[in-house]
């Protein structure tokens, strides 16, 4: 059985690649791929954070609903 690949290739514009390469000089990142992987993980993590529900107590929920009723938008 062929071993499943652990990496794949995505394309980015060459100027962006050059820009990143310059940016990571002197940092701990050893390659543009490492840096892009790091950034994308950060972005995905923040997006997932955005989809998780924040704690909204029953009382807070009721206050919002009361407001919407007072405005005539909710029965």
């Amino acid at each position: 059985m062929p071993e499943q690949r652990k990496h794949t290739t995505v394309s980015i514009p060459t100027p962006l690649y050059r820009n990143i390469k310059k940016r990571i000089e002197g940092t701990g990142f050893t390659s543009v791929s490492d840096y892009v992987t790091y950034v994308l993980r950060e972005v995905l993590a923040s997006l997932e954070e955005g989809t998780s529900e924040e704690v909204f107590s029953k009382e807070e929920e009721d206050r919002v609903k009361d407001r919407l009723r007072a405005l005539g938008y909710l029965d």
């Binding site: 955005g50 989809t51 924040e54 909204f56 807070e60 919002v64 009361d66 407001r67 007072a70 405005l71």
Partner: peptide, 29 residues
């Protein structure tokens, strides 16, 4: 709310904005 005869200050503005922020975040989720 004033035009509807309701008290507009039941929830202080700052508190309402905080509630709406959370509310919208959950709705977007």
């Amino acid at each position: 709310m004033i035009r509807r005869g309701e008290d507009p200050d039941v929830i202080p503005d700052d508190e309402l904005i905080r509630l709406y922020r959370t509310y919208l975040k959950n709705l977007k989720g």
